[in-house]
């Protein structure tokens, strides 16, 4: 049985958008902290985060699958071959990317800005929020990059999700399956739809980004 395209599309969008949101919720605060904190070993943590961007998706998939496997340390959670398991894998893929871009974005702001905000009477939380507002354009770029990385990956989705029709099949795994069967027409349809989804989401974020940028230039 073959899933209708819209169902696979909806599942892809659900998994990748959820993973991107969770990764942003982790990566943006983490990147901000790494950019602002004066702690010993920050260089090492930064190197680890940057290495995370280069880890192959199949390696992340393998790691998550081993964790979630029935006999693995998190086996009791029954997340292997589930959408939630795939979200976990994609969070691990997108978080280093978002963290790293956030860190660079915050470091590009005037270094005196946090102290300046404190001197204006901001508490810690107000300082952080204002820093995010000032860096909103690159932070949107970070979110877009995270989503792009999540929606386009196939290795982790295959290993952790298992490409089960009606349950865990997403656009990328459907393309691989169709190419494997020699059904290039169907694979092209999935590819086109996936491209359209990526374009839609990124177009939306880009328009927000450009509007903010245009305001700042006026």
């Amino acid at each position: 049985m073959v899933d209708p395209v819209y169902e696979v599309l909806a599942r892809s969008a659900l998994v990748s958008l959820t993973a991107s949101l969770v990764a942003a919720a982790i990566g943006i605060p983490l990147g901000t902290w790494l950019a602002l904190a004066r702690i010993p070993g920050r260089g090492f943590v930064t190197a680890v985060v940057n290495t995370g961007m280069a880890v192959p998706t199949v390696v992340v998939g393998l790691f998550v699958a081993l964790m979630l496997w029935r006999s693995g340390p998190l086996g009791e959670l029954n997340l292997i071959y589930t959408v939630r398991g795939m979200v976990i894998a994609q969070v691990l893929l997108a978080t280093p990317l978002i963290t790293s871009i956030t860190m660079a974005a915050v470091q590009l702001l005037p270094p005196e800005l946090p102290g300046h905000l404190r001197s204006l009477g901001a508490n810690r939380w107000q300082v952080v929020v204002r820093i995010w507002v000032e860096a909103k354009l690159p932070l949107l770029a970070a979110a877009m990059a995270g989503f792009g990385h999540a929606i386009s990956e196939v290795g982790a989705a295959t290993i952790v999700g298992g490409n089960i029709h009606g349950q865990t099949q997403v656009m990328t795994t459907a393309i691989v399956e169709n190419v494997g069967r020699g059904e290039f027409g169907a694979a092209l349809v999935y590819g086109g739809v996936l491209l359209a989804l990526a374009f839609l989401v990124n177009g939306l974020l880009s328009s927000v980004q450009q509007r903010s940028g245009a305001w700042a230039r006026n």
Binding site: P110, E112, L113, H116, S119, L120, R130, V133, E134
Partner: peptide
């Protein structure tokens, strides 16, 4: 505190 560089938002 008025800084030398205005640092407006």
């Amino acid at each position: 505190y008025v800084t030398q560089r205005p640092a407006l938002l």
